[in-house]
Computed example of a mutant assay.
Amino acid sequence: MSSGKKPRGSDLLAQRWTKQDLARLVDIEHDGVNLVEFFPKGIPDPDGGWGTWHVKPDALLKFLGTLLNHDKIPGVWVFPKGLPPVIEGFDVGFQAGSARER
């Protein structure tokens, strides 16, 4: 894709999320990380989705590093849970593929 030109549809197809991409995303396993909700988008063949992980404070950096090492990186936001100065954990939300708004 040349810079300065509007992307063509065929260029954007290469960036689409597949069912396998989503499966790799939601199957991430770490101690202290639990996927608590996942909503796929696209029937019958999902091409996106959104969800939330609950992450313990000591697992957050390793978990975010794992997300950044994926071929396709979802839109992610992190929300702390607890009353400062004690953080009990984090909600890590994501949007991927066709569900991504950010």
Rank of each mutant, 00 (worst) to 15 (best):
P84V: 12
D27Q: 14
N34G: 00
E37G: 09
G49H: 06
V55T: 07
G93Q: 00
V36I: 15
Q20C: 01
Q15T: 08
G89F: 03
F90P: 02
T52G: 01
L25V: 01
D11Y: 04
G9Q: 10
L64D: 00
R24P: 01
L68E: 15
P7C: 10
S3Q: 08
N69C: 03
A59S: 15
A14Q: 13
L64V: 14
F90Y: 15
P84W: 03
D45W: 06
D58A: 11
V76E: 04
L68M: 13
R100F: 00
D31S: 09
P84E: 10
P40G: 05
F38K: 00
E101H: 07
L68S: 15
L67C: 05
H30N: 10
R100E: 09
G93V: 00
K56T: 15
T18Y: 05
S10Y: 14
D91L: 06
P80R: 13
D45Q: 04
K72V: 04
T18W: 05
E88L: 10
L64C: 02
K62G: 09
P57T: 09
D47Q: 14
S3L: 11
P85W: 11
G97H: 02
A96D: 04
I87W: 06
D91P: 00
V33N: 00
K5S: 13
I87F: 06
Q15M: 14
L22D: 11
G4I: 10
A99D: 13
E101R: 13
P46E: 05
E101Q: 13
L67V: 10
G75N: 11
E37I: 03
L61H: 02
D11Q: 15
V86S: 12
P74V: 07
V92A: 05
L60K: 07
V55I: 09
K6S: 12
T66L: 06
E37T: 08
N34Q: 14
P40K: 03
H30Q: 10
G65A: 11
G48W: 01
R24H: 13
G89W: 05
V33F: 06
F79K: 15
I28W: 03
P44D: 03
G89V: 05
G65C: 03
L61P: 00
E101I: 06
P7A: 12
P7H: 12
L25S: 02
S98G: 04
E37H: 08
D45M: 00
V33R: 02
G82P: 07
L12D: 07
N34K: 14
K41R: 13
T66N: 08
G4R: 08
S98E: 04
N34M: 10
P7T: 07
G75R: 07
Q95F: 12
P44L: 12
M1R: 03
